[in-house]
Design a protein around this nucleic acid. Structure first.
Length: 432
DNA sequence: TCTGGGGTCCTAGGACCC
DNA sequence: TCTGGGGTCCTAGGACCC
């Protein structure tokens, strides 16, 4: 019986954030390298060499023994850089494939249906991404997206074993060759389902595919039942070419230290959330805010509160107005806060908002917001702002002029932030 | 000292209505 | 005093993804 031709490919960058850092800093190549999340807290990306030293995703770097830490190169996460390299990869893929679904910052699904030689085109994509962008990739192929994801995992295992990496960086997964894939590595199987499935003797992707669909649906629900079907080669979904409108926009951070007055931070989060809202052409019907104590110090404090807006709005001033009363309502004197966030909810398209006779958005003010966004786009986020929220979210470099000001209290200090090589003129790579 | 951030979908249960 | 079915909407919690 001949193998069904693949319909989908999944192309993903190997240890993407680390690979991005290596593009601009070759001294990191073949050296154990770690990228840290907000506030230089947890490891969010590890090179294979770093994994070999026993480091794990999610581990706080300060918990790593000093002897290990001295052997690894550490970088603060630089999402502006990663996002830019990601966009270059998408551009390149659109030249080679009729349809591309941007699935995440480091993963793209491609349509390979009808291509005379899908494998060859995927290898060509891999070659171009490596040569033109500098990121090594693996490719999974399959008749469903779940099988393509499975193939991608198996391609990674395969290329690790291979002496000549690259030649084996593509794997075409079918329901007949996924017995080497642990069930916890299947797309849609998280650690909880994996534990339950293993208890029932389901250890590999092939075991899951062999289970009756109805029994999976009854015990685990329709989502996992779809996954099971897709492992059998029955497609339950196609590429999603249009990104659906967001239902909510959330901006939240852990603070660099415990603070008693988080209002500046919350104002900044709300300002950034509103920028994202306008960028997507949306308006919010409700705002919510929350604050947490420091659980690592045994403080389980949590407070949150939400309020509907008088009308759906994308005006930062209206959101800040709502935020002020929300914040006032949940602040407790003497309480220390470690983390907080602002959410915009019940989002609607700004251009189709229902008008309300007594409460309408003010078009002049909204044009003002557009001007503000344009200035920030040209001169950098945070060039102008309202009130205390002059700056973008995120940490500061040691010695940054903002460091030490009142607004900076909550910001983490990033010791190892690489320059925005590709997105800021004053941080371009210098060649001597 | 230092402990990530931003999403979606599904389901169960309660409130409310006829 | 106890007893009913069926429908909708909302919310909270749990699962998953990167």
């Amino acid at each position: 019986m001949s193998e069904a031709a693949p319909r989908f490919g999944l192309i993903d960058g190997n240890t993407f954030y680390v690979s991005c850092e290596r593009v601009f800093d070759p001294s990191l190549r073949d050296v154990p390298t770690v990228v840290l999340g907000n506030g230089d807290g947890c490891c969010i990306a590890l090179s294979p060499e770093a994994k070999a030293l026993g480091l794990r995703i999610g581990t706080p770097i300060f918990q790593v023994p000093k002897v290990i830490r001295e052997q690894v190169q550490v970088r603060s996460a630089n999402f502006a850089l990663y996002g830019d390299l990601s966009a270059r990869i998408v551009t390149l893929l659109r030249d080679l494939f009729p349809r591309v679904e941007i699935y995440s910052i480091d993963e793209n699904f491609v349509d390979v249906e009808g291509l005379p030689n899908p494998l060859a085109v995927c290898l060509e994509a891999r070659r171009r991404i490596l040569q033109w962008v500098g990121i090594p990739c693996c490719v999974g192929l399959g008749t469903t997206r779940t099988l393509a994801k499975a193939g991608n995992k198996l391609a990674k295992v395969q290329s690790k074993r291979a002496v000549r990496a690259g030649a084996l960086a593509v794997f075409h997964a079918t329901s007949a060759n996924i017995d080497q894939l642990p069930v916890e590595d299947v797309w849609g199987v998280g650690h909880r389902y994996a534990a339950r499935l293993q208890q029932e003797g389901v250890r590999t992707a092939a075991d899951l595919a062999a289970r009756p669909a109805e029994s999976i649906r009854d015990r685990y629900g329709v989502v996992l039942a779809r996954t099971q079907q897709e492992l059998c080669g029955i497609a339950c979904g196609d590429l999603e070419l249009e990104e659906p409108d967001r239902q909510q926009i959330v901006v939240s951070r852990s603070f660099g230290r415990d603070v008693t007055d988080p209002s500046d931070a919350l104002t900044t989060f709300a300002t950034v959330a509103c920028e994202k809202l306008r960028h997507r052409g949306l308006a919010a019907s409700a705002v919510w805010v929350w604050l947490d104590g420091n659980p690592h110090k045994g403080d389980g404090f949590h407070a949150s509160r939400a309020v509907p807006l008088p009308h759906p709005s994308c005006d930062t001033r209206e959101v800040l107005h709502a935020l002020r009363s929300l914040t006032k309502a949940i602040l407790r004197p003497g309480q220390y806060y470690k983390r907080g966030g602002v959410g915009l909810a019940d989002l609607v398209r700004a251009d189709t908002r229902q008008a309300d006779l007594f409460s309408q958005p003010d078009p002049r003010r909204e044009r003002g917001m557009a001007v503000l966004d344009a200035i920030n786009a040209k001169f950098g986020r945070g060039a102008v702002g309202l009130g205390a929220a002059g700056w973008a979210v995120g940490g500061v470099r040691p010695g940054d002029r903002r460091h030490g000001s009142r607004d900076s209290q909550w910001r983490p200090i990033l010791k190892a932030l690489s320059p925005a090589y590709t997105t800021k003129w004053n941080e371009l790579l210098r060649v001597r």
